[in-house]
Simulated scan of single mutants.
Amino acid sequence: MDTFALEPAVQALLVDLGVTPAHVLRRAGLPPDLFGRAPVRLSPGQYFALWRALEEETGDPELPLAIGRALSPEVFDPPLFAALCCPDLRTAARRIAVHKKLIGPVTLRVDEAQDRMRLVYHWPVALDPPPLLVITELVFWVVLARTATRTRLRPLRITAPEPPEDPEPYRAFLGTAVEHGPLPSVAFAAADAQRPFLTADRRMWDFFQPELRRRLSELEAGASLTDRVRAALLEQLPAGSAAMELTARTLAVSTRTLQRQLKSEGTTFQAVLNDTRQALARHYLTHSGLSVREISFLLGYEDPNSFYRAFHSWTGRTPAQATAEAARSPADPDPADAL
């Protein structure tokens, strides 16, 4: 579950971008016949190297936009192509959120309110995805919505930890600038999220669904319960919940079964929760610029004082001390490798 899928259609996308696939592979240090083997799964290091090589090969600071313009049904991989079969963007987002792990170890959360739908990405703390990849993921949603509705939908807001240096080309293409934010996200008006997809095809979805379900089951079968609990917590915590009962419901097991199986793996729910919170806390303090109050909420604490006490018990330092130390040693490796 900690690998990324590389589908055969990627080669067609590279050609459409005017890039020679062999040059990208050589620059990334990957086997020259890799695209001929696809679909294959790459480690995060290999996958990120491929994206960085693509950026270096093109030298295009607006590469996410170029990829957005080149995207077509022919270069979507199966989970994303299946999204075009959905009746609307809201349904597509929900389905992709379920099947996102088929593409890579990234969590997609769908937050819905009366007036808008917001899609939020959570990358494992130990991973450091290239900004190019993060922004391309966000651009994809705009392209998907426009492709399926045949209208020039404009998102309400887009955020990324590292926005593009020049915001104007993105504002012109997307209809809004990519703003700085602690988490990658894109929000659409509720009316646009429910706008009918002209590409909707229930028969095609019925064709895709069994295969996607089979692949998802195979992938999850190889994951430990500890990994699955951690993944569930990464979705729960930013919504303000750290309840074991919610985690158990998410994983479709009873709390008793959850506790018993975690014990058989040599851990407990509280231990996984603490490890997850600690790794996220270190990441937020050193990379996000968020206040302690905001971080405490994202970690599922109702009271910032509870977060202060917990962080001190984990590290022997206060959050302010940890932030100051990180500022003095920017080149040090990220200590949040527990995830």
Rank of each mutant, 00 (worst) to 15 (best):
Pro61His: 06
Glu62Gln: 14
Glu62Phe: 13
Pro64Gln: 09
Pro64Lys: 11
Leu65Cys: 13
Leu65Asn: 06
Leu65Pro: 05
Ala66Phe: 02
Ile67Leu: 03
Ser72Leu: 09
Val75Ala: 11
Phe76Val: 00
Asp77Tyr: 11
Asp77Asn: 12
Pro78Thr: 11
Pro78Met: 10
Pro78Asp: 13
Pro79Ser: 05
Pro79Asp: 03
Phe81Thr: 00
Ala83His: 03
Ala83Met: 11
Cys85Met: 04
Cys85Glu: 01
Cys86Gly: 07
Cys86Trp: 01
Cys86Asn: 10
Asp88Met: 07
Leu89Lys: 00
Arg90Ser: 06
Thr91Asp: 09
Ala92Phe: 08
Ala92Arg: 09
Ala93Val: 09
Ala93Lys: 03
Ala93Cys: 10
Ala93Pro: 08
Arg94Leu: 13
Ile96Cys: 02
Ala97Asn: 05
Val98Ala: 12
Val98Glu: 14
His99Lys: 08
Lys100Met: 15
Lys101Gln: 14
Leu102Val: 10
Leu102Met: 12
Ile103Trp: 05
Gly104Ala: 11
Pro105Trp: 11
Val106Ile: 15
Leu108Phe: 11
Arg109Phe: 03
Arg109Trp: 05
Val110Gly: 06
Glu112Met: 02
Ala113His: 06
Gln114Cys: 05
Asp115Ala: 14
Met117Phe: 09
Arg118Ser: 14
Arg118Ile: 00
Leu119Gly: 04
Leu119Asp: 01
Val120Gly: 01
His122Asp: 15
Pro124Trp: 12
Pro124Met: 09
Val125Cys: 12
Ala126Trp: 11
Ala126Phe: 08
Asp128His: 12
Pro129Glu: 07
Pro129Met: 09
Pro130Val: 09
Pro131Val: 10
Leu133Met: 12
Val134Asn: 01
Val134Lys: 01
Ile135Gln: 12
Thr136Val: 04
Leu138Met: 11
Val139Gln: 04
Phe140Lys: 14
Phe140Cys: 03
Val142Met: 06
Leu144Asn: 01
Leu144Trp: 04
Leu144Tyr: 08
Ala145Tyr: 03
Ala148Glu: 10
Arg150Cys: 11
Arg152Ile: 03
Arg152Met: 13
Arg152Asp: 15
Leu153Gly: 00
Arg154Asp: 07
Arg157Val: 05
Arg157Ser: 05
Ile158Pro: 01
Ile158Cys: 07
Ile158Leu: 14
Ile158Lys: 07
Thr159His: 07
Glu162Cys: 02
Glu162His: 02
Pro163Gly: 10
Pro163Asp: 12
Pro163Gln: 12
Glu165Ile: 00
Glu165Val: 11
Glu165Gln: 13
Asp166Trp: 06
Asp166Thr: 07
Asp166Ala: 13
Pro167Asp: 06
Pro167Tyr: 02
Glu168Arg: 13
Tyr170Trp: 07
Ala172Ser: 14
Leu174Cys: 07
Leu174Asp: 04
Gly175Thr: 09
